[in-house]
Design a protein around this nucleic acid. Structure first.
Ligand code: ZN
Ligand code: ZN
Ligand code: ZN
Ligand code: ZN
Lengths: 134, 134
DNA sequence: CATTAATTGAGACTTTATCTCAATAGTGTA
DNA sequence: TACACTATTGAGATAAAGTCTCAATTAATG
């Protein structure tokens, strides 16, 4: 699936509700919570927002960012596998396009007898702005 | 902090409540949810279990495992930084003692102007048992 | 247009976690 | 040991996050 195809396999019909949600996600500046997204779309039910968010995560159209402390935020994923850099001070989230995990994965997989299907990596730290303050 | 010191800096007094919780965590076979831990300790309040769990995560005495799909499980961390291998079929969770993230971290850090403080990596796949079934 | 099944909305419900605050109990000092 | 001080706890209220139900709506197909 490429990033222009806004309909994951799971969806069998295209609907205006989902168009509305997708547009909001793509246009959202930065990251958002499910609740924030839902709140910004009064014409769409909460259930639909959660359903769409869940379905989109199966593709890489949406990525879930695990903010330190356990809160979950989302952002448009652009259709590319990637990881995140989260600033612990200001909360900024940057995408990291490179992924080095494959070789590591293979080594671990053979050592533990696993077949690796996916992985999740998040880096936490301080952005250039925040590390010069305090 | 080493794994024998069962009192993170955040705690200023040692209490029997926390001793009870720590013992349950150390003795727990495998991973558990906050609710399961709390349920197994009727003499300890839920709030104390959550408070202790949160405090212990600041050290590596407890590690939080992010199970695919968003559920959170915990396990005794042994005081060592490590990652996890989660079986998507049976839910088994293995610790991965090696961590290759440092070099990757440094490269990303300089490229994005970040100072990296920590990271989280989880691998998802199928254990040797489950991959032969189905 | 009619049929069929996917999708939706509204709200109840569940799960997970945090908060409040009075009561309890460590810890250091006398 | 007794006292003062304050960290910690318990119980329950509350909040946050996500799921579920089901009748009504709507896309797709012919
Ligand atoms: Zn991303
Ligand atoms: Zn990766
Ligand atoms: Zn672990
Ligand atoms: Zn690591």
């Amino acid at each position: 699936m490429n990033s222009k195809d806004e309909r994951p396999t799971k969806f069998r019909r295209s609907t205006s509700t989902r168009d509305t949600i997708m547009k909001a996600i793509i246009d959202w500046p930065g990251h958002f919570s499910a609740e924030e997204l839902s709140g910004s779309l009064p014409s769409v039910s909460r259930a639909s927002v959660f359903r769409t968010l869940a379905a989109l995560q199966e593709s890489t159209l949406i990525c879930r960012v695990l903010v330190d402390g356990g809160t979950t935020r989302y952002r448009f994923g652009g259709g590319q596998h990637h990881h995140h850099l989260v600033c612990l001070e200001c909360g900024e989230i940057q995408d990291i396009p490179d992924c080095d995990a494959d070789e590591f994965s293979r080594r671990i997989a053979s050592r533990h007898g696993y077949t690796i299907a996916s992985h999740q990596l998040e880096l936490y730290g301080y952005c250039s702005n925040c590390k010069t303050l305090d």
